[in-house]
Design a protein around this nucleic acid. Structure first.
Length: 437
DNA sequence: TCTGGGGTCCTAGGACCC
DNA sequence: TCTGGGGTCCTAGGACCC
C-alpha cells in the first residue's frame, strides 16, 4: 500500500526575482552607487520606475513623479538616472541564461523575473533552499546582481514565498513555503497583507478589506465559492492556487504578442496635426518592426491621442479609432497610411495634446496563413490601391469626408459624429471597391 | 404594438501584472 | 513647468442574425 507523504511536500515552482532590477543594473556598472539612494526614471524623466532600498525606506512610491521628489532628493542626496533599457535587457538575458542551467523548465515572466519548473529535480539538491542559495550565489558571482528565490507548490505560492524572502531578512533571500509545517505557515501568512498576493490589486484589496479580509491567512480561510461568486473566475483561481491546487502552468514557450503598442508622452504639449502625424508614423514603424520580428501580420490598427489628464485646468479630449485593414499586413507604409487616415478623423484643433500612440491588433497566426495564400506582395499592392483611393476621396470632399465607423458601435458613432461632416459616409470596405478602378 | 431565445461579433472599460 | 510604457484577461452590452 502506498502511503502519502504529508509531512514535507516537494515544491513544484521557484520564482527568481532580481531585487530593484534597474537600480541594481546601474550599480553593476557604477559601483559608487552602491549603498546610496538611487532612482531610475521613466521616459522624459517623468517618474520613478525603480528605487533602491534606501529610497524605498524614504517612502518613495513606485511611479512617483520626479518633480514632486526633488526636495526630498536634495535633502537625502538621491541620485536620479535616466533609464537605459538596452542595458537592462542585456543583463536580463544573462540572468535567464544562468537560470537555464538550474532547470530545463523555464518561464521568463518579465524582464527581471523567472519561474522555474522543478519536476524531476528533487534529488539534485538536499533541499530546495540549498538550490535557492546556489542560484543566488551564482547569479551574484557572474552578474553581481542580487536576487531572491521563492519556492511553492503553485506559482502563486512561489510568488508569495519570493515576497517573504525579500522582506524578511532572516530568510536570507530564499523562502520555501512547502517545507513549512502548517503552524509555521499559518503564523507567517497571518502577518502578510492580502494585497501582497499575486493578482490582488488595489481595488480587490479594498473590497476584501470591506469584507473583513486583511491577511493572506484570512483569504486562505475564505470559501472559494464565495470568492468566485463575488469576484469571478480570476479570484477563484487565486484562491485555489493559495491552497496548493495548481491552476497556472509553466508557460515555457513564449507565445507571440496579441497586440503591440507603441506610445509615448510628449516632452512638451503638442497642438498641430503635423506634429501628431510625425509621432504616429514613428510609432507605427517601431510597432511594425516588432510585428515582423515575431513573423506576424495584423488586420487592424488603433490610433489614439489624448490631452494631459493631470492638467485639470485644460480642456480635455481623448479619442481613438480602429481601422480595419483590407488585408492583414505588416507593411510599414501601408500601416502608416491607415493610421494617419484615422488620426485625421479623431484630431481636433485647439487642444494641447500630451500623448499619442498606436496599437496593432487582430494579430493571429491564421491571419498570416490567409495572407500567405495570396502573395504578400499582391495583398499589399491591393491594400495600397485601396488606401490611395481613400486618400483621393478625402482630398476631394475634405478631410472629414469618409468615415470608417460602420465597424463601430452606435455610441462611438455619435461620439464621432460631431467631428465629421455628414455629407458622405460609407464603410472602409465599401469605398475602395467602388473607387479602386 | 408586443412577443422569445440563442448565438456571434465587436467595442469599451475595468481589473490586474511588470 | 514637470505625472511611464507595454501587456493580459474578463465582463457587459449593443448590433445583428436566425
Amino acid at each position: 500500500m502506498r502511503t502519502k507523504n504529508t509531512s514535507v511536500s516537494q515544491p513544484m515552482f521557484a520564482l527568481v526575482d532580481v531585487n530593484n532590477f534597474y537600480v541594481s543594473c546601474e550599480r553593476t556598472f557604477n559601483p559608487s552607487l552602491i549603498n546610496r539612494p538611487v532612482v531610475v526614471l521613466s521616459n522624459n524623466d517623468g517618474c520613478a520606475v525603480a528605487r533602491s532600498n534606501e529610497v524605498k525606506a524614504l517612502g518613495v512610491k513606485m511611479g512617483a513623479p520626479w518633480f514632486k521628489l526633488k526636495d526630498l532628493a536634495k535633502q537625502h542626496g538621491i541620485v536620479a538616472l535616466s533609464s537605459n533599457y538596452t542595458l537592462y535587457g542585456d543583463m536580463s538575458d544573462r540572468v535567464m541564461t544562468i537560470l537555464r542551467n538550474f532547470s530545463p523548465h523555464v518561464e521568463v515572466y518579465s524582464i527581471d523575473e523567472c519561474f522555474l519548473g522543478l519536476q524531476g529535480l528533487g534529488k539534485l539538491w538536499p533541499t530546495a533552499t540549498d538550490m535557492g542559495q546556489s542560484i543566488r550565489s551564482r547569479i551574484h558571482q557572474w552578474t553581481s546582481l542580487p536576487v531572491c528565490v521563492g519556492f511553492g507548490a503553485t506559482k502563486t505560492l512561489a510568488k508569495l514565498a519570493n515576497h517573504i524572502a525579500k522582506k524578511q531578512p532572516e530568510f536570507n533571500g530564499v523562502c520555501d513555503l512547502s517545507a513549512m509545517s502548517a503552524n509555521q505557515l499559518n503564523t507567517l501568512l497571518s502577518l502578510i497583507e492580502v494585497g501582497e498576493v499575486w493578482g490582488v490589486g488595489r481595488q480587490i484589496n479594498q473590497q476584501l478589506n470591506v469584507a473583513g479580509i486583511y491577511t493572506v491567512k484570512a483569504l486562505c480561510d475564505t470559501p472559494t465559492t464565495w470568492l468566485r461568486a463575488k469576484f469571478g473566475v480570476v479570484m477563484e483561481r487565486i484562491s485555489k492556487e493559495l491552497q496548493g491546487i495548481s491552476c497556472l502552468s509553466l508557460e515555457e514557450i513564449s507565445t507571440p504578442r496579441k497586440q503591440i503598442i507603441s506610445s509615448r508622452s510628449f516632452g512638451q504639449r503638442v497642438y498641430s496635426l503635423t506634429e501628431l502625424s510625425e509621432s504616429v508614423a514613428y510609432h507605427i514603424s517601431s510597432a511594425a518592426e516588432k510585428l515582423r520580428r515575431q513573423h506576424s501580420v495584423c488586420n487592424a490598427i488603433q490610433v489614439f491621442i489624448q490631452t494631459n489628464p493631470f492638467r485639470e485646468q485644460d480642456k480635455q479630449y481623448s479619442n481613438s479609432m480602429t481601422i480595419p485593414l483590407p488585408n492583414a499586413s505588416s507593411d510599414t507604409r501601408l500601416l502608416i497610411r491607415a493610421a494617419l487616415f484615422g488620426l485625421r478623423h479623431i484630431y481636433r484643433k485647439g487642444y494641447a495634446y500630451k500623448k499619442a500612440g498606436v496599437i496593432l491588433t487582430g494579430i493571429d497566426p491564421l491571419a498570416l496563413y490567409q495572407t500567405s495564400l495570396l502573395t504578400q506582395q499582391g495583398a499589399d499592392e491591393r491594400s495600397a490601391r485601396l488606401m490611395n483611393a481613400l486618400d483621393q476621396l478625402n482630398q476631394k470632399y475634405g478631410r472629414n469626408t469618409v468615415s470608417v465607423f460602420s465597424i463601430g458601435s452606435k455610441k462611438s458613432w455619435s461620439m464621432r459624429r460631431e467631428i465629421m461632416s455628414p455629407c458622405y459616409t460609407t464603410s472602409w470596405q465599401d469605398v475602395p471597391i467602388a473607387y479602386a478602378h
